[in-house]
C-alpha cells in the first residue's frame, strides 16, 4: 500500500509541474488562439538562465530564480513582438507554423550554448535527506517544487480574478471586438499573454531542472508533453490545465509503477498520455473544462 502512496506522491509532484507548464500554454491559446509549439524551448531556456546566473555569475539561487522569471517574461514578450505581432489576422495555419519555425530556431540557439550538449545540475541548496511520512518519502526538491508551483498558480488565479490587466485579458479572450471598444489594447494583451506564459514556463523549467537535472532533451520534452494535458483539461481552461496536469502525472506514475515490466510492455508512461489524447479527441474533444464551441464541421 505504501508503494501506491509513493506513486501517488510522485504523481502529484510530476503533475504539478505539468500543470505549471500547461498553464503558460493555455494562456497563449486562450488570449490569441495560437498553439505555441515552442513552449518546451522556453521552459528549457528559463531553467538554463537560472543555472547561468547562479553558477556562472554567482547570484544566490533564489534571486536568480526571480531574475530568470523576469528575463523570460521580457524574452517571451519580444518573441511575440518580433515574430507573431505581424501575423495577427493571418490564417491560423501560418501562425502555428511560425511557432514550429520558432521551435527550430530556439533549438539552434540552445545548441549553440554549452547547455545543448552537456548535463548540469543546480548546486545543492536544500537538505538531501528526504522527508518521510508514514513510509512515503518525498525529497525536499520535490516538496519545494510543489510549493512554488502552488504559489505561482495561486498568484495567477488571483491575477485573473482581481487585477485589472488580468480582467482585460479575460475580456479579450471572450470577445476581441467588444474589448477593443472599451479601450483595451488587444495587441498589448497578446504580448502580455506571451510574457506571462514565458514567466510560468521559466518557473516550471527551474523546478524541473532542480528535480531532474538540466538535460536539454528532458526539459524540451515537457513542451510536447503539455499537449495531452491541455487537451484533457480543455484547451482554453486554466483550471482545466491544473486538474488535468495532476491527473496526467498520476496516470504516468501509476503506468510506470504497475504496467511496466508486465505483459512485455515498457516505457508506457511515455506513450499513454498520447493514447489518451487521441481517445479524448475522438470522444470528448473539448476536454474536462474547455468551452463547448459550436463546431462547424
Amino acid at each position: 500500500m505504501s508503494y501506491f502512496f509513493q506513486l501517488m506522491v510522485s504523481g502529484i509532484v510530476v503533475g504539478s509541474i505539468y500543470a505549471l507548464s500547461a498553464l503558460g500554454f493555455v494562456l497563449i491559446y486562450k488570449s490569441s488562439r495560437v498553439l505555441n509549439i515552442a513552449h518546451g524551448q522556453i521552459i528549457a531556456g528559463g531553467a538554463f538562465i537560472v543555472f547561468a546566473l547562479t553558477v556562472w555569475v554567482g547570484i544566490p539561487i533564489v534571486l536568480s530564480f526571480l531574475a530568470s522569471l523576469v528575463i523570460t517574461f521580457f524574452l517571451a514578450m519580444s518573441v511575440e513582438r518580433i515574430f507573431l505581432r505581424r501575423l495577427i489576422g493571418e490564417p491560423i495555419i501560418s501562425v502555428i507554423m511560425v511557432t514550429i519555425g520558432l521551435m527550430s530556431i530556439l533549438d539552434g540557439v540552445i545548441y549553440l550554448t554549452p547547455f545543448g550538449s552537456m548535463n548540469y545540475s543546480f548546486p545543492e541548496f536544500l537538505p538531501t535527506t528526504p522527508l518521510s511520512l508514514g513510509g512515503v518519502s518525498i525529497s525536499w526538491t520535490q516538496l519545494v517544487g510543489v510549493v512554488i508551483t502552488a504559489i505561482l498558480i495561486g498568484a495567477f488565479s488571483w491575477f485573473f480574478k482581481s487585477a485589472t490587466l488580468g480582467i482585460s485579458m479575460r475580456a479579450v479572450s471572450d470577445d476581441q471586438l467588444a474589448s477593443m471598444s472599451v479601450g483595451i489594447s488587444v495587441p498589448r494583451v497578446f504580448g502580455l499573454a506571451w510574457a506571462l506564459a514565458g514567466l510560468s514556463a521559466a518557473g516550471a523549467g527551474a523546478i524541473i531542472g532542480n528535480i531532474t537535472g538540466l538535460n536539454y532533451e528532458t526539459l524540451r520534452a515537457f513542451g510536447i508533453a503539455v499537449f495531452p494535458v491541455v487537451i484533457l483539461g480543455g484547451l482554453d481552461s486554466i483550471i482545466g490545465a491544473v486538474v488535468a496536469g495532476i491527473i496526467m502525472g498520476l496516470i504516468q506514475q501509476f503506468a510506470a509503477g504497475y504496467v511496466d515490466g508486465n505483459w512485455g510492455l515498457n516505457g508506457t508512461a511515455d506513450v499513454l498520455p498520447y493514447v489518451i489524447l487521441l481517445v479524448i479527441l475522438l470522444f470528448k474533444p473539448h476536454g474536462l473544462f474547455g468551452t463547448h464551441e459550436i463546431e462547424r464541421v
Partner: peptide, 8 residues
C-alpha cells in the same frame, strides 16, 4: 535547426 527555423 537554426537554418530550418529561420527559413520557415
Amino acid at each position: 535547426p537554426l537554418g530550418f527555423g529561420l527559413v520557415i
